[in-house]
Write a protein that binds this DNA or RNA. Structure first.
Lengths: 248, 248
DNA sequence: GTTCGGCATTGATATGGGTCAAAGCGTCCA
DNA sequence: TGGACGCTTTGACCCATATCAATGCCGAAC
């Protein structure tokens, strides 16, 4: 079983973005589809695109560190980025994975609140924060949209708090798989084949578990024919069962 | 030992807000000091104040339910509000406590992402979402400020994710007490006497623990002379020790 | 003042998930 | 082609926290 590169077949023009061209790294159009672009006119999108600069990071490269001065805003074009906070003794909590189309640093604060590290090789397009700010400042409609978007992010963070504080290991893993499936679905074709490019340690640090528990839970789900663990990912055999476990 | 009502001695004019009068429910000035008011001129603040409407809720009253249409924006003037998400089987995660000065519904989304319930009797000033939106829409500087504020909220949520996913019971309780102390400090005088108007169940649901564990942890901290449990609150005897436990 | 009801505390016990340790298993490179 | 390294899985055991069950405490109602 192979997984489609999630970034491979998407074009912003085919979705809710007015930018009528492929945005996946083609020469004249670097920014990828994103949730706020519906607020922009094609001309505005072109302008935004002109501000951007494509940048590549190998796996494990830091995009930025927690607490660092926030000099850039990034739009992930390809690959996966982990966002995390750490404790001095090394304990780590991954607060999210950024997939193609996601923005980093959109809070537009002085300093980054989390660290960002490439899980896979990553392509981003980068904006200088200053330029992005001045671009945004003249566009109240975009600002409104960004704010709404921030509210959505907050809501997701609160869901994750519920998951971390009140769910069992089984429920956590089930919710994670379904959530990832849904997110891949938004940037490619919805499929029962869910790539897991991140390590077990990453998954554990995202769900507040240990690698061993993640591994055991996956084999347990495999034994009950709910999922099938394959190289680099998971095939969801019974989304019903997963839904039941993850029950809202 | 008694606790000062945290709301009693604050005046926005003494802080970073340009509104040079007491904002604690006096007749001509209902809105309480809040983090975005620095972005507003006195005249704008007056206008905002004119839009508002004072409202009281008894303890345990719902201000709004999760998923309900977001008709209002609230500014808490007095009392404490718990914000939470629940699972169908009743498990609950409190995602935050709103203290005097805090806003509810500032994400300005269509629906509330969490439920809000009065812990103590609560006074708020209410804005209709529509009015608040149109008030805000003409003020890009305020919108920027609101967005920054949302970013800060997100950062707090991420801290809480780290706490829920990776900290022990002791660390959770220590961090909670220090955090609460700091927040009271912002609306009144910083004190080692930290009122705990919320129940142990609330604290447990905030920290991802059970009441018993919260209780045991507090008695453990009491035995080691780190805190002193008193009626309706806690006295912090060794913030050093608590800092050490909560170590960022 | 007494009783009642709702929380909080404490104790005894159970268990989900953590820890420690040892195999497995790919994959990359010599 | 093989060996070594890194990641994952599996197993055995343990412990932090949950669960279950009293008991204690305090404020409200009468």
């Amino acid at each position: 079983m192979t997984f489609a590169e999630p970034a491979a077949e998407t074009c912003a023009g085919e979705r809710d973005c007015k930018h009528g061209r492929s945005t996946n790294g083609c020469d004249d159009c670097k920014v990828r589809l994103f949730s706020v672009c519906g607020a922009l006119e094609p001309a505005e999108l072109d302008e935004l695109d002109r501000l951007s600069q494509v940048k590549n990071f190998p796996a494990k490269a830091m995009l930025f560190d927690q607490g660092a001065l926030a000099g850039s805003v990034f739009n992930v074009t390809e690959g996966i980025v982990r966002l995390y906070k750490s404790l001095p003794d090394g304990r780590r909590q991954i607060v999210g994975f950024a997939l193609p189309g996601d923005f980093l640093g959109l809070a537009l604060m002085d300093r980054y609140g989390v660290a960002a590290e490439a899980v896979t090789p990553v392509r981003v397009c980068r904006f200088s924060r200053a330029q992005f700010l001045s671009y945004v400042d003249g566009k109240p409609h975009l600002l409104r949209r960004l704010h709404e978007f921030a509210g959505h992010e907050l809501s997701l963070a609160q869901d994750q708090m519920l998951l971390l504080g009140r769910r069992t290991a089984d429920e956590k893993v089930a919710a994670f798989l379904l959530n990832l499936q849904a997110r891949y679905g938004r940037i490619g074709a919805m499929s029962v084949n869910v790539p897991l490019p991140m390590s077990r340690q990453d998954i554990a640090d995202y769900l507040g578990l240990t690698i061993e528990t993640v591994s055991r839970t996956l084999t347990k789900l495999t034994k009950e024919k709910t999922v099938l663990v394959v190289p680099d990912g998971v095939r969801l055999l019974s989304t019903d069962r997963l839904d039941q476990l993850a029950a809202a």
